[in-house]
């Protein structure tokens, strides 16, 4: 199933063309990594997926419908920093998403409902390896643990797409490889579509099933903003999921049968 489609999508600020004529189809469950020089529009691209920026022209579809032009629970996000709420402890951070859905008025659950939500959140914390710090406040956690928490917090809403904006950019190399293992594990377990911006090409190749490079096709030296960036490379990488392999063998089988 096609999860996300971009048709002739442009983004301009006045005369400044940021993205030009982007066409892209992303199937549900792909892990897309986005790389490119700074200022090449990959963040703008992510913001459009998130809903904080609107395309100037063209279409951006999520499951066949135009994507909402404000953030909602369909799209989870993890930023490089400030992704978790400092006034809530670890487990409350994860519970928040569920509580907001359960109680429109107070955004807070009580009694047996609260215990149920807490159990659900605890399960999610175990998944990201934070079960032992449920009662601590985020400010007492390391950067890597805060990002784990941010991921758990986003996942509990079961979004259709998970957007990661350089989530591991500020982490030490050792921690970073732990986080790689974690995100791959989560992606395989949940089958969620992931878009991840990274500055690290190796990371992009290692994590993604598909690597998109944003760059300008044309450059006008006298007017650098005249032309926008588009996707210059769309590289399928390291897609070793069973479903993909099945897809391939199925198509091959079909071909064989028709022959």
């Amino acid at each position: 199933m096609n999860n996300i489609e971009l048709k002739k999508l442009w983004k301009e600020y006045g005369d400044n063309v940021v993205l030009e004529n982007i066409n892209l189809t992303v199937k549900a469950g792909e892990f897309i990594t986005l790389v490119g020089a700074s200022g090449c529009g990959k963040t703008t691209f992510l913001k459009m997926l998130l809903g904080t920026e609107k395309p100037s022209r063209g279409q951006l579809l999520l499951d066949g419908d135009p994507i909402r032009d404000e953030p909602d629970a369909d799209r989870g996000i993890v930023f490089q920093r400030y992704s978790v709420f400092p006034h809530l402890n670890v487990i409350e951070n994860v519970m928040l998403g569920v509580e907001l859905g359960e109680s429109r008025l107070l955004g807070r659950c009580f009694g047996s409902k609260r215990r149920k939500v807490r159990a659900q959140a605890q399960e999610m914390l175990e998944l990201v390896g934070l079960g032992h710090v449920a009662k601590q406040y985020p400010t007492s956690l390391s950067g890597g643990m805060q990002q784990r928490l941010a991921i758990a917090q986003a996942l509990i809403k079961q979004p259709k797409v998970l957007l990661l904006d350089e989530p591991f950019g500020a982490l030490d190399p050792g921690i970073r490889s732990d986080m790689h293992a974690l995100i791959l594990d989560i992606w395989q377990k949940t089958g969620i579509t992931i878009f991840m911006i990274t500055h690290d090409l190796t990371e992009g190749f290692y994590l993604g099933t598909r690597l998109l490079v944003f760059d300008k096709h044309r450059i006008d030296p006298d007017n650098p903003n005249r032309y926008g960036a588009s996707i210059t490379f769309d590289i399928p990488v390291a897609d070793t999921r069973k479903s993909t392999l099945d897809d391939i063998s199925n198509t091959m089988k079909q071909k064989q049968e028709t022959l």
């Binding site: 909602d72 799209r75 996000i77 400030y82």
Partner: peptide, 20 residues
Amino acid sequence: ELIIKAQTLGASTWQLIVRV
């Protein structure tokens, strides 16, 4: 980021005010 994050968790304006 916090304001956007709350919206991706499904918060309405009112919920954003009282919980965040």
